[in-house]
């Protein structure tokens, strides 16, 4: 008994010191870069965080759905891609806006609402027709269905957008302003202006409203929620609508700030966003935002700092960090292991 407990604490000690060592090295790396070139450091941070908030919009969709029905909705990234295609069609094809102007801004705002509605509707439809019937089936059945839905959406993307990338002109201003040699593009500011109110609004819905309360109750115990008079199906639909709307907003932002659409973008960004959700602790909303901003920041710093591994190692760095974190804290940054009391 005593033997096993000392062995246990020795292991704990090794784990702790390795973790501390890794964190120490990361801070050391950041510090030398900061000293060497402060302007590049802040520049990379801003790029990183602005990517991070975009990831956060998508990551929330993964974490919301996982929180309520314990399904990794693999089709979610592709929904984001559809949001981008919708935005391009809406702004450039239907409203013929290709340059910044007052009409352009109005159409952008209109498109934000339309894209959120569009993706929310599709996400609700996916849940209604593909996932709902499988709710009581073994977990693998809805999971593989989600992979199937992901392919279906990607092929819709190919029909809509063609098999290669397409570039678009943006209605957002392309200039930038400078604060002591750190360049901040206007598009970054607009990304923040759209994303942050959305994140605050989302938090408000989940924490304060009746619907939000029903969501949290259903997430913890669906049958008990039913016994409170909560319409569980409606609550799950609402959750998919919320996640879909955020993916729609992310699709528009990506399409307008990068001027790019491609059928496989959902796969790439979806994977990053899903990683963010896991890093933050899947099912935890603030965790998803924190994880997304961290990943954006890590990518930004790695790609932009004078002493770094550079862009071609970007994914490697992100997933190495994820793996290390999972080893030391499997529940993610803010996830807590649930202790069941009977």
């Amino acid at each position: 008994m005593a033997n096993s407990s000392t062995r246990f604490s020795a292991r704990l000690l090794i784990e702790r010191s390795v973790a501390t060592l890794i964190i120490g090295l990361v801070f050391f790396w950041l510090a030398i870069n900061l000293v060497k070139s402060p302007s590049q450091f802040f520049q990379s941070s801003i790029i990183g965080i602005s990517n991070g908030v975009l990831y956060a919009l998508i990551a929330l969709g993964y974490t919301l759905v996982y929180g309520i029905i314990e399904l990794i909705n693999f089709a979610h990234g592709d929904l984001f891609m559809l949001g981008g295609l919708f935005a391009a069609t809406f702004i450039t094809v239907w409203f013929k806006q290709e340059t910044p102007s007052n009409t352009g801004y109005a159409v952008f705002f209109l498109c934000l609402i339309a894209a959120m509605g569009f993706c929310a509707t599709i996400n609700v439809g996916i849940e209604r027709f593909a996932y709902r019937r499988l709710r009581k089936a073994p977990k693998l059945a809805p999971l593989i269905t989600a992979v199937g839905v992901s392919f279906i959406i990607q092929f819709i993307g190919i029909r809509w957008n063609g098999s290669g990338p397409k570039t678009w002109n943006s209605v957002l201003p392309s200039g930038e302003f400078t604060i002591s040699s750190v360049h901040i593009p206007y598009t970054t500011v607009i990304s923040f202006l759209v994303t942050i109110p959305l994140l605050i609004f989302m938090t408000f819905i989940v924490a304060k409203t009746r619907r939000g309360k029903a969501m949290r109750a259903t997430a913890q115990d669906a049958d008990a929620a039913r016994l409170m008079g909560i319409n569980v199906n409606k609550t799950i639909s609402f959750t998919f609508a919320l996640g879909g709307a955020l993916a729609g907003a992310a699709g528009l932002l990506f399409q307008q700030t990068r001027g790019l659409t491609n059928y496989n973008l959902g796969y790439q960004l979806g994977l990053i966003a899903f990683t963010s959700a896991v890093l933050g602790g899947i099912g935890n909303l603030s965790g998803a935002v924190l994880g997304a901003i961290l990943i954006g920041l890590i990518q930004g710093l790695n790609d932009g700092l004078p002493i770094g591994l550079g862009q071609q190692w970007s994914q490697t760095v992100v997933f190495t960090i994820l793996i290390l974190l999972m080893v030391f804290k499997p529940t993610g940054l803010l996830g807590k292991p649930m202790v069941e009391k009977v």
């Binding site: 949290r216 913890q220 115990d221 049958d223 008990a224 016994l227 009391k341």
Partner: peptide
């Protein structure tokens, strides 16, 4: 219900 089924995180 049986087993109380209260919402533990609330």
């Amino acid at each position: 219900p049986e087993g109380r089924r209260i919402f533990p995180k609330m």
